[in-house]
Structure formats: structure tokens, C-alpha cells
Design a protein around this nucleic acid. Structure first.
Lengths: 239, 239
DNA sequence: CGCAATTTTGATTTGAATCAATGTGAGTGG
DNA sequence: CCACTCACATTGATTCAAATCAAAATTGCG
């Protein structure tokens, strides 16, 4: 046996409600399933940050499963404004094309490892493996709900509340949140956060300053924040 | 043969880009597939507008496929603010639960016909019918992209632009848009539009007033609008 | 026809965008 | 090793779009 492909996992069923579930469960893909999937894939290790994986408008040849690292999915408007549509954490799927072309741009935020699946082959494989196809269906359904949730955040919360919800989302990922000390290692820049929350860097900073003044967040450094998760939950107020 | 279930269809692959495709293509489900699916389902006809189909937080027993009519999917915040997450048109799927509970509320906007699938049975059926499962996967992927698109609209467009994008979305549905006269029959209230666009009724009206002044929209009545689709596309500016 | 809900218009306030600087810190090369 | 630099982050001042509060108009329905 060469590998057990332990990092080939699909993230789903994380909490709609903040505070409910702590760490995000992953699907239990069986060893056999992982090996079959891995056979289709090419593994890609990217050391650089801000490395382009694919570009909005480009011809789509692959779908991706993130094994390690962090990836941002963004859309560039004709006027140059950028909207980040999602941050992808290990176990997330992305690169599902529309009519043969990518709709978004994907870039690494930290060094990352990807499983790259040739689109055609993957489609064929899923048709022949209903159980794995079912996992994919559940995963996409989960992603749809996450996106709907973000839509609610954007539609009905002011920036401080959006930021509170976002910090809690980050804190759900153990790799970046030291639960013992409540310290969050913010992996992305203020620009990324602003473009995800549909606001500006300045406004993100001001929201953070406000949290600091209220004692909800303590800044060890710009990228190291001690969070009071209960109060953040209260502020975000999504149940 | 009792029925050919011609209204059992799945809407997908509509345009990311405005103006590209006109009417929305539907999957060609074969007669056999439609009949098999229909066997699982119970047909529900709802004559009333604003009739509740399911409620946020309720136990989820069914998934739904809309055959006729219009349905809004909304989320109510603890403070009473409402965000409409999607409008569902014929061929749309909804009611995928999370951990056995509905996350949103679904209500009719116009009289509607629904195919109701018992969650368990549907799941089992899809596992046994990879080809139909594949259709579902494509459909959910499509819905995910639509929602991501709406996220971009909310994150990066001001209210007039959001409204322009929304009117174009409505105009893509032939049942509500008379292409010859460019007349849109707006089926939902200003409240619904505001709650979908993350704004207030007043602001929606003001945006519409601005369009009227600019000659982009002519109001025959509050719910009958003559659109200049090219200029709306220009305003929305999503490519 | 009249009433109630819906839609529109008006006045004021407010949160966030924008414009403008300043501060901070990690990495580089002298 | 320190100074220099550049990207990132924060703070401040001003402007502006949209929320909110308030009222009038309209419309479609019973």
C-alpha cells in the first residue's frame, strides 16, 4: 500500500447555527473509495501564496478537492471590484465549471495541496459510483446552504455583525483556532476579508477596533486575535 | 398511459451572463424517468397566494419540485427581519433539509403545483438511479452558482444595479415577460423584492423611479413594467 | 364605491464609502 | 546589525447612498 490518502476527505454538515457544532465533521469515505478517487486525480502541491489555480473565463478542464491549505474563490467585476465568493478549507470542492468555463478565479492563500480531477473522467466515474456521487450531492447541497447563509449575512447584517459571523466561521477550523486560548490565527488579509464581506478594508478595521473597545476581541497582532466567541455569537445574532 | 408529466422538469443551465440565453432550458428527462420520479411523488396544488409550504425549523419530511407557479424561500432573523434567499420558478427544486430540519420557510407567491418527494424515498431512489442523481447534482450545482451570483450582486452592486439585475432575471421567465412588447408582469410585491435585494421597499421604489426618469423602465401599473433590457444589462453591468 | 393593502413621495438621520494620512512590521540588502 | 522599503493595517475627515420615520397617493378588490 502506497498511501491511505487520509487527506482525501469531503467537508460537509458544519453548523448553520454558530456555536452548535465545534469542529467540522468530514465524510467517512472508505479506504477503497479514497483510493478509487485518488486514482483519478493528480496531486498538486503549491508552496506559494496568491498562486493562481484557475481564472475566471478560462476553459475548465479540472475540478478540485482541497486537501491542505486555504483557497479563495473570487469574481472580478468589469469595473475591477472584487467579490470573494468563498474561502475553501480542506475538504472543500471547487472548480465546477459552467458550460465548459470557470466562472470564478481560484487562488491559494496559504501553501496548499489539491487533488485535481479531470472533469470528464470525474463525471463518468460518479455515474458509475452512485454512492460517491451521493457524497458529492450532499457536499454541493451543503455548499449551497452555506452560500445562502452568507447571502443572509450580506443582506441583513451591518458590517460589525458580518465580521462577527466571519470570525466565528474561521474559528470553526481547528487548524487556525487555538481553542484553549481562544486565539484565532487569521490567515487572510484585511483586503480578503473586506472583499468577502462586501465592504472596504477601512470598515473592517473599524469594526475590529469597535470589538476591541468592547472587549470582544483582543489584538495580539493584526493576524492574531483572541476571541470571545459567546459574545461574537450574540453580536452576529444568527440564532 | 395516464399522464406524461410534461411539467415534471428540472430547470438548469440558465445564463450567468445576462442577455446570453433567453428562455431557460430544462433538462430532457425521458418519459420513463419522469414516470419513475412521479411515482415517488405526491402532487400538491395550492390555489392561495402566501400559502405556507414549510417553515424554518420544522422537521423535514419532503423535498419539492415546482411544476407551476412561483415560490419564495425566506429566512427570518431573530429580530424579525426577513431575507428572501431565492425565488423558485417552475423546474426548481427546494426543501433539501439540514440535519432533518428545514432551514428556510417556503411560501407560494402565485397559485402553484408541486411534486412532493418523501425525503427518504427520494434519497434511496437517487442512489438506485445514477443518471437521475446526476441530473440532481447538476441542478444543485447550478443553484449554487446562481446563489453565488446573487452574493456578488449583493456584495458589489448598489440598489439600482441590484434591481436591474433582478428585473432581467424576471424577464428570463417567459410566463411573466411578454417579449414582443417588453412587458414584465411583476408577480411579487415590493416587499418581496426589497427582502430579496437586501434593502427596503422605499429604496426599491426610488430605484424604479430613477429608472422611469431615465427612460429605462415605463410603469404601466405597479406590477406591469415595460423594460429596456439592453439598458438594464448595461446598468447591472455583470459582463 | 369604498376600504385596506400596496406603492410612492418627502424629510431626516445614519452607517459606510471614499479620500487622505499615518503607523507597523516583516523581509532585504548595504 | 541596522536602515530602508513595501505591503499591510489603522486612524481621521468628509461625502454620500440608503435606512428610517412620516405621510400621501394609488390601486385593486370585495
Amino acid at each position: 500500500m502506497n498511501h491511505d490518502y487520509a487527506d482525501l476527505k469531503i467537508r460537509a454538515v458544519n453548523g448553520w447555527r454558530h456555536g452548535a457544532r465545534r469542529e467540522v465533521p468530514h465524510f467517512a469515505l472508505s479506504m477503497a473509495e479514497r483510493q478509487e478517487l485518488a486514482r483519478l486525480a493528480q496531486i498538486m502541491d503549491i508552496k506559494a501564496a496568491s498562486a493562481r489555480i484557475f481564472t475566471q473565463g478560462g476553459a475548465a478542464a479540472h475540478s478540485y478537492l482541497l486537501a491542505r491549505g486555504l483557497v479563495r474563490i473570487s469574481y472580478m467585476m468589469p469595473d475591477g471590484a472584487r467579490q470573494i465568493v468563498a474561502f475553501n478549507w480542506p475538504g472543500d470542492l471547487f472548480g465546477m465549471a459552467e458550460e465548459g468555463h470557470y466562472v470564478h478565479t481560484a487562488e491559494t492563500i496559504t501553501p496548499s495541496r489539491l487533488y485535481c480531477f479531470p472533469t470528464q473522467k470525474l463525471e463518468q466515474f460518479l455515474l458509475e459510483n452512485p454512492k460517491i456521487q451521493d457524497r458529492f450531492l450532499i457536499k454541493i447541497t451543503h455548499d449551497l446552504r452555506q452560500t445562502q447563509r452568507q447571502l443572509i449575512v450580506m443582506g441583513r447584517l451591518d458590517v460589525p455583525r458580518r465580521l462577527a459571523a466571519f470570525l466565528l466561521d474561521c474559528a470553526a477550523h481547528e487548524a487556525y483556532f487555538e481553542a484553549a486560548s481562544f486565539t484565532l490565527n487569521v490567515p487572510m488579509s484585511r483586503y480578503d476579508i473586506a472583499d468577502y464581506l462586501g465592504t472596504s478594508v477601512e470598515t473592517v478595521t473599524r469594526a475590529l477596533t469597535k470589538f476591541t473597545e468592547q472587549g470582544v476581541v483582543r489584538r495580539l497582532s493584526p493576524r492574531k486575535l483572541v476571541l470571545s466567541t459567546p459574545r461574537l455569537r450574540q453580536i452576529a445574532g444568527l440564532s
